[in-house]
Write a protein that binds this DNA or RNA. Structure first.
Length: 341
RNA sequence: CGGACCGUAGCGCAGUGGCCGACGCGCUCGGUUGUAACCCGAGAGGACGCAGGUUCGAUUCCUGCCGGUCCGACCA
């Protein structure tokens, strides 16, 4: 099992905000970091049958928060998934349990993790009335702008306008001190900060994790619905193949495309946000003819070597596939069990 | 409710009453590069929104429906 070696060597604030794209607000998080024990952090996920690399990215943050002393609440957002057109309620609920088991297999500490099904409290009268109160405070265009990065279909529905307001309310009802989400969630969280005071609740403190770029182009963000994405149901050879297909110029700062779109190096991003946070050390298995194995103790060293040419992208990819496979293996095993039931 | 425009491969779009429905991006395969991208070569993929009608024949004309976009004080 991967272990973090950072828990003891970093101060709490550093650990809590490590690898995040945005801290809202720094002062609020510093206050939490002063005494993290027993503080509650949460992420909501629309249940899906299989964890993918995006789920794992926020889960990495949850694991770090647990190391810092936080209690973690994972909301299995069945009602949200339903509102976002992800299937019938029955189908969605079916996947929630599987998802929970996969999170534990991935490395969330079971004793410090509270899994909550959204429908357990989101249909209560009090919740619904509070929700209507928020609806009264929120313009349709604000709600749909907040949903733009999350919405599944191409048509905005009324359900999708309600969705972000429920997220805001969840933060109150789950009694959490810190809301975690990918950068695609930031508008929803900002809406929550603006709106919750109208029902006498506090504006939530938020951390947003980065989004990993599309694997084959480096443009935009990786999506589980299009292009290549990595999930726990990938076999070892799937992973090798996908990583090998990844866009990987020998730099951390690739040139924009001809159309002027920014590009990232997704291979490096995965090292930074997935591999190093979960493994203390990375060994790149390199053929003798190119100089033999390389050892890295930090992401920055690996990046510097790729940049200088010391580390060839092909070797970096080989190592990435190896470590991704190690990360995914426990979840892969769990999925195998789930499917043989 | 009223009006305008639109609905053609995964996406963006061209086009014609009958002749192979074009192009760009994407995708697949091969070449090149110790990865990928770029580049080169070869491919796959479409009941031309649905239902009627006109016609010898409709994807192209007409009607209805469904779906989408925009407009609806005055002026123009």
């Amino acid at each position: 099992m991967p272990e973090s070696r950072f828990a003891l060597s970093m101060d709490a604030y550093e650990l809590i905000t490590r690898n995040v794209s945005e801290v809202v607000t720094e002062d609020e998080v510093r206050a939490l970091a002063e005494d993290p024990d027993g503080k509650r952090a949460y992420v909501g996920y629309e249940p899906s049958g299989v964890l993918h690399i995006g789920h794992m990215l926020t889960a990495n943050k949850l694991i770090e928060l647990q190391e810092a002393g936080f209690e973690v609440v994972v909301l299995l957002a069945d009602v949200h998934a339903y509102l976002n057109g992800k299937g019938t309620f029955e189908e969605i609920r079916e996947t929630a349990t599987r998802m929970q088991e996969q999170f534990v297999a991935y490395g969330l500490e079971e004793s410090q993790t509270e899994f909550v099904l959204g429908s357990e409290f989101q249909l209560d009268e009090e919740y619904v009335l509070d929700l209507h109160a928020l609806e009264l405070e929120t313009s349709l265009s604000r709600a749909s702008r907040a949903m733009a990065e999350i919405a599944g279909g191409d048509t905005a529905t009324v359900a999708q306008a309600v969705y972000p307001l429920m997220q805001a309310l969840d933060i109150v009802y789950l009694d959490v001190d810190l809301a975690i989400g990918g950068m695609e969630q930031r508008k929803v969280h900002m809406l929550a900060r603006d709106t919750l005071p109208s029902i006498d609740a506090d504006s939530p403190t938020c951390l947003h994790t980065p989004l990993i770029a599309d694997l084959t182009s480096g443009v935009g963000k990786m999506s589980s619905s299009e292009g290549l994405s990595i999930s726990m149901e990938d076999t070892e050879s799937d992973i090798e193949e996908k990583v090998n297909k990844a866009y990987c110029p020998p730099t951390a700062d690739p040139e924009p495309t001809d159309e002027g779109e920014d590009r990232e190096n997704p291979v490096l991003q995965i090292f930074e946000y997935h591999v190093f946070p979960r493994f203390g050390e990375v060994v790149v298995d390199r053929p003798e003819q190119y100089g033999g194995d390389l050892h890295y103790e930090s992401y920055a060293d690996l990046e510097a070597d790729l940049e200088s040419g010391e580390l060839h992208p092909a070797d970096a990819k080989g190592a990435l596939a190896t470590y991704l496979n190690r990360l995914i293996e426990p979840g892969r095993e769990k999925i195998r069990e789930q499917r043989s039931d």
